[in-house]
Design a protein around this nucleic acid. Structure first.
Lengths: 209, 209, 209, 209
DNA sequence: CATGAATGAGCGTTCATTCAT
DNA sequence: GATGAATGAACGCTCATTCAT
């Protein structure tokens, strides 16, 4: 479940792919504002002008990187008939949340640089924030709310405002990811156990009664 | 308890205060890299050269803003005889965590711009990250570990690695703050209830058994 | 004899040539430190950024001007089989020194601005001084020493340490050039006679006995 | 003979002396244009403003250093009744030139930093050059011409235009000083012998016949 | 008389972007 | 489509000089 059928990079020329790859690397390491287009060009092995042939501005390049990332991040929740999935595959909230968290953690782990750019740049670019709230807060929150209410109705989750449930769930999950991969990547982590504990904490915190 | 007796800004000239204030505003809004010194000067109503009389470089200006913030952030945990406080004032973990969270939330709410700069700039400045891990991870984590173990020994918290307890606690708390004040500041929030719910979630998640 | 087959400026773009020309003019008149890059750009009729596309720093621009000058200055002494030349063309030291001096005077006269930059900037730039001693003192002094010894062996020059002979010879020659073209260029000079007298003084001063 | 009764530094305050000393050191090492007033102030141990209390501009500070140097440099030739000295003490040109050269070499050796500033800055400051030609070329050249003619009349020097004699003499002498103390100060020099040879070369080059 | 904070013009350099080839 | 030379505005920072204390 929750596999992704996203295909991008398909209509990109070889040079474009190199530009994107170089930009991702630099943006994630030094930030958008501190990365120069000439640096990207050099790293990508193309001429400076080539970047601007494909992307009108430096910012457009950033958006062309971040926007698909945001879409992919919430992809599993955009599945058309998610409720069917829920009923069939995940009778218990615990199973659903476990699957979802493991799936998203795997995804973010594999796309850590993109994730990094996303959270680093959102504060500085109103368009990004807008896109984010529009995609996530509106489309996805609605979905998530339904899901939460679904399990609340089944008596599997505490009766708390769904938005609060969503918030603490995401906080817990992203808190793990940021600690694990961005803040203390060099500490020793027993990932399996740590995820297990995190989910356990979340489940207990959200259990009814 | 946990009041702060930090006094800074006291030996600063009038111009220096204006520079700091202008820098905080701009850094928090546009980020360090995207803020120009000329812009800070204009906003502060001083000549550009004046900035550099007080701060050798733009980066030094940033550090002079962020470093004290970091110290103040963890101040309540640097109290000399914290254990006495714990025994006397907070026999129950719940009371302690409630007091601590409310206190720190109040502090961060009052210093939201500084908090914003801190979390926005840490990824881009190795010195900052270093200072952070040095101050927080080493000094404070040790303290927090003792506290957690203290309440674990009393049987008030689940037997989980203290680092994990710390992580989920901070995630929950910072997740609230970031959602509330940075991501969705314009949504309607019933702060009192929301904090109450958040602490409740945390307590249940960490309760033994 | 002693013609030069040096060709530079050949792979330079039009703009680069203009930058070099403007830089030479300004550096020689006001000195390197007192010449601004914006001034050079204006004089060259290019944008200031263009200078830095071709020369990473202002100093690199200086070096790109001075280094070839130094090479050309000593070029006649780097001829592969100089001894053959000496034996065939200049049996007498007087003929050699006359030819050499006239040749170098002509060269410096035609490159007075470059010569000026060279002697004006050497004191302030260790790299230049190093390059100078390396090229001149080592490579050329060895050559000159051999030549002096060659004519001393023939009994045509006084038996004095070759280094001293070289020093007084160069002093006499450069003293003329500096007086003539840099210190008192507006006095009336009978160049031919003055050079004749200078060589005569030199020859007598160095004659054996 | 040729002792100097120059007294300067007499009406200078302690701070002023320190400023002058610091300026001399920096100007001679890095050049006037590349030396900042703040650097001089720091080295002198005074406030930046103090420099400008004593010297209206940075350039005035330079001139206050160089002008007296120039005066002292030619002092021995400004003696009122130089001819009496010549007749009494130096019947032979050789004795005169030897005494003069040794005296001036000693003086310059003792004031090498000032000498360095003088020759380094003359090219860049029209006022300096003017002062130089006015003092040297007019006042002193006249004197020197008389002296040369005096010895030419006695048949002790070659019949050459006095200006040429002066030029080659100064070139020879300054050539030694510059080689010895500025270009190759770290080579091994047998000063006594080298001066002896230099004077010998000069005498032979200028001898009649 | 000495101070040093303040100034603002100007510095060398980098930048995103354009455009002729 | 790709290039890279060219641009000029803007950058962080330094400077000589002023002036209230």
């Amino acid at each position: 479940m929750f596999e992704e059928f996203v295909n991008d990079e398909e209509e990109l020329t070889e040079k474009q792919k190199k530009i994107i790859a170089a930009a991702i690397e630099s943006f994630s390491e030094k930030g958008f504002a501190a990365t120069s287009t000439s640096e990207i060009a050099k790293k990508a092995g193309v001429a400076e002008g080539t970047i601007f042939r494909h992307y009108k501005t430096k910012k457009e390049l950033l958006l062309s990187i971040v926007a698909p990332m945001m879409a992919k991040l919430v992809a599993p929740l955009v599945i058309k008939d998610l409720n069917k999935v829920l009923n069939q595959d995940y009778e218990r909230f615990e199973d659903f949340i476990k699957a979802m968290i493991e799936n998203r953690i795997k995804f973010l782990k594999n796309n850590m640089q993109l994730f990094r750019i996303l959270i680093q740049e959102i504060p500085f670019h109103p368009e990004l924030k807008e896109q984010f709230t529009e995609h996530i807060a509106v489309k996805i929150f609605d979905r998530l709310r339904q899901i939460i209410e679904h399990y609340q109705a089944k008596g599997q989750i505490i009766k708390m405002p769904p938005d609060t449930v969503i918030r603490v769930t995401l906080s817990t999950m992203l808190g793990y990811l940021i600690s694990r991969y961005l803040l203390l990547p060099e500490a020793e982590w027993d990932d399996e156990a740590e995820i297990e504990r995190t989910v356990q904490f979340l489940m207990k915190g959200l259990s009814p009664e």
